[in-house]
Amino acid sequence: MTTLTTRPASAAAVRAHHLADAPSDLRCPAAGKSRSMHRFPAATYLCRAVAREERAIAQQALEATDRTASRRVGALALTGSAVFAAVLVLLATGRAEAAPGAVVLALLAAAFVLVVVALVVVLRRHEAEHDALAHRVQMYEARLQELRARR
């Protein structure tokens, strides 16, 4: 099996068009979404302007995912608190001793377990997404530091 070789873009190509940093640069303008998402995963070959732009995009994505996760966690926490309060009210009034109350108590307990499981799932997914985006921001920051040192 042969090895696949790559050759870095020439300096003339980089100067000619600042978006052509590497052979694998995939910055095709899509229908209206050319600037709204991260397009280049490796910060190794980026020039200063593109690294700044990509770092800003990655930081915006990180902030957006943090806001989304905090809203989801808040909604689940509020739901869990409401279910827990309903269980406490049911137990405090003594209605859980009758047959219909026991069924309602079991349903509320199951709902509380589902809320806790959903909370764990949301937190785990957010942790993975946050770590990936934070790493991406750090890659661009490291590339910018490297380019500043070359000045």
Rank of each mutant, 00 (worst) to 15 (best):
Q59R: 01
H126T: 09
A9W: 12
A109M: 13
V117A: 08
A9T: 14
R72D: 14
E127V: 05
V117E: 04
L147Y: 11
A56P: 02
A69D: 10
Q60H: 06
L107H: 07
R7M: 09
D25G: 03
G74K: 00
S81T: 13
A69P: 00
E53W: 14
T79G: 01
D25Y: 13
L114C: 03
M37W: 07
T65M: 07
E141K: 01
L144K: 01
A13P: 01
A9S: 11
A142V: 05
L105F: 08
L46W: 05
K33Q: 13
G80Y: 12
T68E: 15
C47M: 07
Q138W: 05
P29L: 12
V113F: 06
V73S: 07
S81K: 08
R124Y: 13
R72T: 15
R72S: 06
P23K: 07
L147M: 09
G74M: 06
A43D: 03
C47Q: 09
Y45E: 11
R148D: 15
Y45G: 04
L91D: 03
H130Q: 03
V121R: 02
M1P: 05
L123D: 09
R136Q: 04
E129G: 04
L26D: 03
A99G: 06
A109D: 14
E53A: 12
S24R: 10
L76D: 07
A51N: 02
A12P: 01
V122I: 14
L78Y: 12
S10K: 02
V116R: 04
R15C: 11
A109V: 15
I57M: 05
D131W: 11
R7S: 08
L4H: 09
R151Y: 11
R7D: 08
P29G: 08
I57L: 12
T5K: 09
Q59S: 04
M37A: 14
E127D: 12
A111I: 12
G74T: 04
A110F: 06
R95Y: 12
H38A: 08
D21I: 11
R35K: 09
S36G: 09
V14K: 08
E54R: 05
V87R: 15
V103G: 04
A102R: 11
A13K: 04
P41M: 00
H135G: 14
L78M: 10
T68Y: 07
A82Q: 15
R151A: 08
L4P: 04
V120M: 14
A109L: 11
S81E: 14
Y45Q: 14
R48M: 07
L147G: 01
H17R: 08
R52F: 09
S34G: 02
A9C: 14
A61Q: 06
P23C: 06
R52H: 09
D66M: 05
R125C: 05
L123F: 09
A77H: 03
V89M: 10
V103Q: 10
E63R: 00
V103A: 13
L90M: 05
V113C: 00
V120N: 05
A58I: 00
L90G: 01
L119P: 03
R124D: 06
R150K: 05
V121F: 14
